[in-house]
């Protein structure tokens, strides 16, 4: 079974230390929720995992199946089976969803013998996944994320997740900016894809998405460190009490 291990991870952005020793293990088939207040380092963790050049690892390690990926460029990490559903997917004008998805699909699914999937294989898989997620055909002819509504953007992210079939998916605030109907559609999409082959790390500020994507573990990130871990009851406590109590607890710990 594949395993994503974050070991005492320290990371900084523009010289500012944001992560101060994060420890977390996600196994394939598990769903972990990572919650925390604004500024706790949630998005920094997501971007650091995929290797955004602005986020520098200053200590610790990230391992996929025991192998460090810290020195790899984002494309190599994707090929190792890592996926990030972006909080704010950027648009790329002039590039159709179709050509983008084909390029990504080919890049990730090209086998050891350097054999890329055929156009036919890609189309079959794409049609199947579009049907599964209720994505309209016309989506393919639009430019990547350009003029997409918040819901469309998130749905496009989930479609990519379905097509690229990673071992580990990090969902960075996938619920932000969505109304309740869009949230349900997107979350149900994730539930359809999740299974024994996928390890999921759901990063969220609010508990509401966890009604649809049931986590096996819940962690609280506070000031760049995981300060509490538990089951679903932890997310309910956060929903009820907010994040204020973490401060007191953190004070006690340090």
């Amino acid at each position: 079974m594949a395993r994503l291990e974050i070991r005492d991870l320290h990371a900084s952005v523009e010289g500012r230390e944001i992560l101060n020793g994060v420890n977390l293990i996600v196994n394939q088939g598990e769903i972990h929720a990572l919650m925390g207040p604004n500024g706790s380092g949630k998005s920094t963790l997501a971007n650091t995992l995929l290797g955004h050049p602005k986020y520098k690892v200053t200590g610790g390690d990230i391992l996929v199946d025991g192998e460090s990926i810290v020195g790899l460029t984002p494309d190599k990490r994707a090929k190792k089976g890592l996926f990030l559903a972006f909080q704010y997917p950027v648009s790329v004008p002039g590039v159709t969803m179709f050509s983008f998805l084909r390029a990504a699909y080919n890049a990730v699914h090209t086998d050891e013998k350097n054999q890329a999937p055929t156009l036919f294989e890609f189309r079959e898989e794409m049609n199947e996944k579009m049907k599964l997620l209720g994505v309209d055909e016309s989506f393919m002819h639009r430019y990547l994320n350009e003029g997409f509504s918040g819901g469309e953007k998130k749905r496009a992210e989930i479609l990519q997740l379905a097509l690229l079939k990673p071992k580990f998916a990090v969902l960075d605030e996938t619920d932000s900016g969505l109304d309740i109907d869009a949230l349900r559609v997107v979350a149900e999409g994730v539930s359809k894809i999740a299974g024994s082959d996928l390890g999921v790390l759901v990063i969220t500020h609010y508990q509401r998405i966890l009604k649809y994507i049931k986590p096996t573990f819940v962690h609280v990130l506070y000031e760049g460190r995981i300060t509490a871990s538990g089951g679903e009851e932890l997310s309910l406590k956060l929903e009820e009490k907010g994040y204020g109590w973490l401060k007191e607890q953190a004070g006690v710990v340090s």
Binding site: L50, T73, L84, V92, G94, F100, A103
Partner: peptide, 23 residues
């Protein structure tokens, strides 16, 4: 970063952005 995070290498990602720009 967005394109590369999907497995596309830097050279191809850059080409894609430029081709899209002149589309």
């Amino acid at each position: 970063f967005y394109l590369m995070a999907r497995g596309i290498n830097e050279r191809d990602a850059l080409s894609m952005i430029v081709n899209g720009f002149v589309e």
